[in-house]
Simulated assay, not measured.
Amino acid sequence: MEAFLISTGVVALGEMGDKTQLLAMLLAVRFKRPAPIVLGILVATLFNHAAAGAVGGWVASALGPDVLRWVIGISFIAMAGWMLIPDKIDEDEAVSARYGVFLTTVVAFFLAEMGDKTQIATVALAARYNDLLAVVAGTTLGMLIADVPAVFVGDKIAKRVPMKLVHAIAAGIFAVLGVLTLFNVGKLF
């Protein structure tokens, strides 16, 4: 349960103001069809985070516990710094709508998540916790918690939520996870 809850919280906070949240808003404004957009986000996230989680599981089994602790701890601290850098949607990530709203969303989100903060966090969380299903379910729920409201509310969220504060909180959580991991503090996180 711990892996699920931590994964959900970290990704939900980390996703605020992220390029995929901006992409969700953009798709909602462009297509005005929330159901296929939300389903596309779900499918893309499940596939992307399952692959990322599998990589994290492999990393955990390939490295010894001491090396793994340092890799994960430093990764979480690096994620804390990365959280403080705001995201923008890259022009080259735009996907043509000729394939329909659902498929456009799946492809756009899958590609946007490649190498993104939440994908890297999923790898680290899967390496930290030996529960792939809980991590993938948690990170997917975290994505949906952040992105589904963006679909329904659009840019009103961006105008009312201070993204710098959300990014600072998420960075703090990643930093704490990193320090606790480096100092090998039991199962707090």
Rank of each mutant, 00 (worst) to 15 (best):
A170M: 03
S61R: 15
G100Y: 03
D147S: 12
G154I: 03
V10D: 10
D147H: 12
L125E: 08
L42V: 02
G142H: 05
V179N: 02
K159R: 15
M114T: 09
G73S: 02
I72P: 01
L46G: 06
V106G: 05
V11Y: 02
I72K: 09
I77V: 03
D155R: 15
G40Q: 07
M25H: 14
V11S: 03
G100I: 00
A108L: 00
F189Y: 15
I85T: 12
D155C: 06
V166F: 04
L5Y: 13
F102L: 13
A24E: 11
N184I: 07
W70A: 11
H167P: 01
P65N: 15
I85D: 13
S61Q: 15
S61L: 14
M25Y: 14
H49M: 02
F152Y: 14
L180P: 08
L84W: 09
G56M: 10
Q21C: 03
S96Q: 15
T140L: 12
K117P: 00
F152R: 10
N48K: 05
A60I: 07
A51H: 03
A127R: 07
P86S: 13
A54K: 07
V59D: 12
K32R: 15
L23D: 11
M114G: 03
A60T: 06
T105Y: 05
A171M: 01
D90Q: 08
L5S: 12
